[in-house]
Design a protein around this nucleic acid. Structure first.
Length: 146
DNA sequence: ACTCCGATTGTT
DNA sequence: ACAATCGGAGTA
């Protein structure tokens, strides 16, 4: 939602800044930022060039390269863990997600009944908006901390 | 220049 | 419940 979402990095009065500049570019690029000075968060830019918008990847379900069956459940459940699992750092900010180094590919097919939506996690502004989307009945989906 | 705090996580 | 850890953004 970009500017119309109070929880977005582009929602401030300053609008475009050095940090969020990638969000104003074309879709399909990585927007990476450091959270709490600790975790690298991976976002995918979604809107057309000139229109700021991005989606945070909060979890990933490891399908290939998981010699680690035991770790499967929580290996990449949580945005900080996604960053850690893929080795995301500042150098990936602005990365073209069509390039194999870190690439978005078509996944298995999902219908509307496979996708859940809920309030977002960990934010203070615009909590009520249902802008968190997840695969239903998938163990890798991240959850709020109890 | 200085303050506040953040789409968190691991440990106590 | 709390520390870790740091830079963006707002205020002065």
């Amino acid at each position: 939602m970009g500017p119309s979402d109070p929880a977005s990095h582009v929602a401030t009065k300053s609008g475009r800044t050095p940090r969020n500049a990638i969000m104003f570019g074309p879709a399909g690029f990585a927007y990476v930022y450091l959270s709490y000075g600790v975790h690298w968060f991976l976002n995918v830019v979604t809107d057309a060039e000139g229109e700021a918008g991005a989606v945070l990847i909060r979890a990933v379900d490891p399908l290939d390269g998981m010699q680690v069956m035991s770790a499967r459940r929580d290996l990449a459940s949580g945005p900080g863990r996604v960053g850690q699992a893929f080795g995301v750092t500042a150098t990936l900010n602005g990365h073209d997600l069509a390039v194999p180094l870190l690439q978005l590919l078509a996944g298995w097919s999902l219908g509307p009944s496979d996708v859940g939506e809920s309030q977002r996690i960990g934010i203070t502004r615009a909590k009520e908006r249902l802008l968190r989307f997840f695969v239903l009945n998938n163990g890798s989906v991240s959850r709020p901390r109890v």
